[in-house]
Design a binder for these strands. Structure first.
Length: 484
RNA sequence: CGGGGCGUAGCUCAGCCAGGUUAGAGUGCUCGGUUCGGGACUGAGAGGUCGGUGGUUCAAAUCCACUCGCCCCGACCA
């Protein structure tokens, strides 16, 4: 019988190939990553999803600390007047404010805004700690929640409250601050590529796509399996914008008051949604081993109490072989049939399944099955300490390679508006064109295709051909895509 | 915020158009038996303010109005 015909199949997950958004919702909820909550637009992150986030978080926290930053914590409530000091910033965010107006049953003299981001709080607070060039660079980070009044929400991708880290730094010179922007963007590239196995494009955002209040923004962009782009982290250069708005100054080396140059950069729980959509398939999640909450799930197989005892005894040396702090192993002793467990752990994306049953025991071996392609192999128990870590590394690399191959297969270079419009009419993916950087061109393309500019790639050079949209002299290449 | 779709058991849904016994199915859940290498079978059982409010009617899951929520597509949006 085909899997689709089996009773209850429809209760599992919708097909990725037929209904991508429905598939995404099903996978997130049925793999128990997250769920809807009693509060509109806000989600509950369940233990399996939170463990996944923790693994990404810990890896990034490590990088942030290794690059010299320290973690702080700042208040979640920001006086409205703080936010209003930087005109473009407040203009960009005011429609998303969620505001506390009452305390102790009385109306507050001044409303407090639930932080949508903390540039204004940081500038207001850090001016007390920055007096001299000797206090710079000030390299801060905080892990927190932020609130934005989104009109259309999706689990992990866009919610009214979400978790992230926001780094904020202040520097003596523009050059040093700009280096910081690139250095942190590279940390994000490492998290995306080396940990989440998602190849990303690095580059600068267009003027119309940049962060409110920034001089420029950079981002990493990943391709999802439906060909859409997901902005997976951003890094912003503010110049003196925030320092001036908050009158944050330091005494420079020549004894004059100067404005420091600042940056901010963030990566959020959205990355979890990215991992789901970058690697998942019809059976559910596929988690990169380095961030998988469970890397190896052990399925004992037995038909009687006698066999159960035999399997249990045989499992002792297996678990001992896998007893490594760097290996995350779970044994599934639940009273269910093996096939049920196979399907469930595939839905949850566990990279390796280790089966131990009578047939294996007779040979002194176990069966390893890779989530990647369901390939099976028998391995002597004694070889597990070597075979398992090697297999996890190969799976990690294979997921990255597969995602890169997918992206390459869905990326084209085009030179005209007609070709670009036709591409988005009948296809999905990234389109690279020469561009003159006029915002008017973005409006035209968006109106015709709903695609937007994602990044001006870091490595792009001035093209010889004219702007694909208006025919004017092109100044750069740009990547167009439909985006989340 | 605009357009479309949908709210009936934990989940997926039927019933509504054409109002009429005690509101159903599958799956899940609890207990028992047989099973167990790709989503088992079977017996018994628990589980529902039919999203909410108001209206029409002898009678509303079903018709009407309002409202709340969810999903999709847009707009908006680091």
């Amino acid at each position: 019988m085909a899997e689709e015909e089996k009773p209850g199949f429809v209760d599992k997950i919708r097909k990725q190939s037929e209904d991508f958004p429905g598939w995404y919702n099903d996978v997130v909820r049925k793999a128990q990553l997250a769920d809807y909550s009693p509060v509109k637009g806000c989600m509950v992150i369940r233990p399996y999803g939170y463990a996944l986030w923790e693994n990404v978080r810990d890896a990034l926290d490590d990088l942030i600390k290794k690059t010299g930053h320290e973690n702080w914590y700042f208040p979640a409530l920001i006086p409205l007047s703080f936010l209003e000091k930087e005109a473009k910033h407040v203009e960009g965010f005011k429609h998303e404010f969620q505001t506390v107006t009452h305390g102790g049953g009385k109306e507050l003299d001044e409303p407090l805004v639930l932080r949508p981001t903390s540039e204004t709080m940081l500038a207001s607070v850090l001016k007390n700690y920055i007096q001299s060039y000797r206090d710079l660079p000030m390299l801060t980070n905080q892990w927190n929640n932020v609130f934005r009044w989104e009109l259309r929400t999706r689990l992990f991708l866009r919610t009214r409250e979400f978790l992230w880290q926001e780094g904020h730094t202040f520097h003596e010179t523009a050059a040093e601050a700009e280096q910081e922007v690139d250095a942190m963007l590279d940390c994000y590239r490492q998290i995306a590529e080396d940990w989440c196995a998602m190849p990303v494009l690095l580059g600068r955002k267009s003027e119309s796509e940049k962060f409110a209040g920034a001089q420029y923004s950079k981002s990493i962009e990943a391709m999802m399996k439906d060909g859409k782009a997901l902005q997976s982290a951003t890094s912003h250069y503010f110049g003196e914008n925030f320092s001036r708005a908050y009158d944050l100054t330091f005494t420079g080396r020549s004894n004059v008051r100067e404005y420091p140059h600042s940056t901010s950069w963030g990566l959020s729980t959205r990355i979890v949604g990215a991992v789901v959509m970058a690697h998942g398939d019809e059976s559910g999640l596929q988690l990169p081993p380095r961030i998988a909450p469970i890397q190896v799930v052990v399925i004992p197989i037995f038909r009687s109490d006698t066999e159960r005892a035999q399997v249990e005894a045989a499992l002792a040396p297996v678990l001992k072989a896998l007893d490594d702090d760097d290996l995350r192993v779970r044994v599934d002793w639940r009273d269910e049939r093996p096939g049920f467990k196979f399907n469930e752990w595939e839905l949850k994306g566990v990279p390796i399944r280790l089966e131990v049953g009578p047939r294996d025991l007779a040979k002194g071996e176990v069966t390893l099955v890779q989530r990647l392609d369901r390939s099976k192999q028998s391995v002597p128990i004694g070889d597990l300490p070597v075979v398992i870590p090697a297999m996890l590394r190969r799976i990690q690399a294979a997921l990255f390679d597969r995602a890169l191959e997918f992206r390459n297969a869905h990326t084209v270079r085009l030179d005209s508006l007609e070709d670009l419009v036709r591409f988005f009419d009948e296809s999905v993916g990234f389109v690279i064109t020469p561009w003159c950087e006029r915002p008017e061109d973005e409006a035209i393309v968006k109106q015709k295709t709903t695609a937007t500019t994602r990044v001006i790639p870091r490595e792009s050079t001035r093209p010889e051909k004219p702007c694909a949209i208006c025919g004017g002299p092109a100044t750069t290449e740009v990547v167009w895509a439909k985006a989340y």
